[in-house]
């Protein structure tokens, strides 16, 4: 039997509109379930504790990003797999594991596949897959800055420039490495425990005949006078992967675009001269300064058959 934890407010009260169809679909797939409505996300731990006994198949989260985060944090110590039935298109974790609609999610419950996802921790808060730290102003702040009469009188109001939204950040990785820059955004991803057997990092280096070695910025394209070569695959056993659990991507704006730096660590401490929100999906879970750890703990997620939980959409736009 599955335990359905339903947030009726999610997706602009979408559950109310689709409840009948959902029940019909569940009956069609002969899925035994218990529906429990969440009145307040703060009550999720108590709700889980009181409703867990007859549940053996897993917990199904019906809601948005906030609901998913609340249930993950409440069920960390339980050994039950989690499934996500998204109530909105912005359900980040559902999208990242290949679930595009609530109908697909219900169908998945009939024949699920499981994927172990590593957990990360910020203070007492657990997270899965990826979090972001951004200095981006919200739309209202941008609008007010643009239309502020005093700034317009002084002639400095206007659309954002390349130097805007940069925050001086300092990142400490495992007490071994410190990185500092003016960043626009940071993305912290959890690395899987191991790379699939037999795989090795693809090795391609850009060598410029003009001696310019540009940053491997995804927006850069190789020019015709450059030689792109791919040395042969490394000899077996000659290159092992790093075991660092967290991958951090710094987005640093520049005149030519955005530069991306990639670093790895087990524990990151991030400090900034202005408070920056730490978000998972679209939910803010903390503010800088913050310490982020990659854990050996895992949570089991149900994923659609055949997807193997591979990322189906890029995490950043």
């Amino acid at each position: 039997m599955y335990l359905f934890l339903i947030n009726p407010e999610a997706g602009n009260k979408r559950f109310v509109r689709i409840e009948k169809k959902m029940k019909q679909l569940l009956d069609q797939y002969k899925i035994k379930r218990r529906f429990v409505i969440i009145d307040d996300l703060a009550n999720v731990p108590a709700i889980v504790k009181h409703n867990l006994r007859p549940i053996d198949k897993g917990i199904v989260i019906v809601g948005g990003n906030a609901t998913v985060n609340a249930v993950i944090n409440a069920t960390v110590t339980e050994n039950l797999p989690l499934a996500i039935v998204p109530m909105s298109r912005t359900n980040y974790l559902a999208k990242s594991i290949g679930i595009k609609s609530w109908e697909q999610a219900i169908k998945m419950l009939a024949e699920p596949e499981f994927r172990a996802e590593r957990l990360g921790k910020i203070g007492k808060y657990y997270f899965v897959r990826q979090i972001a730290i951004t200095s981006r102003q919200n739309l209202l702040t941008k609008y007010l800055t643009r239309t502020n009469p005093i700034l317009r009188f002084l002639g400095i109001a206007g659309p954002g420039r390349a130097g805007d939204n940069q925050v001086t950040t300092k990142i400490l990785l495992d007490d071994e490495l410190s990185a500092s820059s003016k960043t626009q955004k940071l993305e912290i991803s959890l690395s899987p425990s191991q790379l699939p057997a037999g795989s090795s990092a693809p090795k391609s280096l850009l060598r410029a005949k003009s001696a310019q070695v540009p940053e491997t910025d995804p927006k850069n394209r190789p020019r015709s006078d450059k030689e792109v070569f791919q040395p042969g695959a490394p000899a077996e056993g000659s290159k092992k992967t790093t075991e660092k659990k967290l991958q951090i991507r710094l987005f640093v704006p520049s005149q030519t675009g955005t530069n991306i730096s990639l670093l790895h660590g087990n524990c990151l401490t991030i400090d900034s001269d202005k408070k920056m929100p730490v978000t998972m999906g679209n939910e803010t879970i903390a503010f800088t300064p913050v310490e982020i750890k990659g854990l050996s703990k895992h949570v089991r997620l149900m994923v659609p058959k055949g997807s193997n939980g591979e990322l189906t959409e890029p995490i950043t736009s």
């Binding site: 990185a179 940053e215 660092k244 991958q247 991507r249 640093v252 670093l263 890029p314």
Partner: peptide
Amino acid sequence: FAESDNPDTIIGYGVSVE
């Protein structure tokens, strides 16, 4: 680069690491 198992390290322009 989006893959979280990419082990490469890049220190971009404007970033200082010690």
